[in-house]
């Protein structure tokens, strides 16, 4: 059951960032029409730096764990769009290895073997890209 690794399950079962952020500066809804997974991202952005980020939503374990992990690694970063691009490329089979604080994202590499589930893992990242580009 390698798709459902313990790291992912930990974030799905006990999410740390699943709540509506107080005094958020930007909010973005995202939905995966094929399965109904939905997410709302809340961010506080100052001078391009994501000072705080959280989410609410409903969906499968993969999409919710992906959202929680994304919030964890993006706090105090200013390169969300680039990380999102790299994450998408990794899921599409490119040989990308995240290091340091981003290392946890490598847990999603397995998703290359489950094309139908890629969209679940990507939902929060796509929503983030829309938010940052809006």
């Amino acid at each position: 059951m390698s798709l459902y690794k313990e790291t992912l399950m930990k974030h799905f079962r006990n999410p740390e960032h699943k709540f509506e952020l107080e005094n958020f500066s930007k909010k973005q809804d995202g939905v995966n029409p094929s399965c109904g997974d939905n997410i709302t991202l809340y961010t506080k952005i100052n001078n391009s730096i994501i000072e705080d980020i959280s989410y609410t939503g409903n969906g499968c374990a993969i999409s919710m764990a992906s959202a929680d992990i994304m919030c964890e690694v993006l706090k105090n970063r200013d390169n969300g769009v680039n990380i999102s691009l790299d994450f998408t490329s990794m899921l599409n089979g490119e040989d990308i290895n995240f290091t340091n604080e981003l290392e946890v994202l490598n847990v999603f590499k397995e998703m290359q073997n489950y094309p139908a589930r890629k969209s679940c893992a990507l939902l929060p990242w796509k929503t983030l890209t829309t938010l940052l580009n809006s």
């Binding site: 059951m1 798709l3 459902y4 399965c35 997974d37 409903n58 969906g59 499968c60 374990a61 993969i62 589930r117 679940c120």
Partner: peptide, 12 residues
Amino acid sequence: ITPIDLGILLDK
């Protein structure tokens, strides 16, 4: 729990 998660874990 979403049905798809259960469906995949049953498939495994």
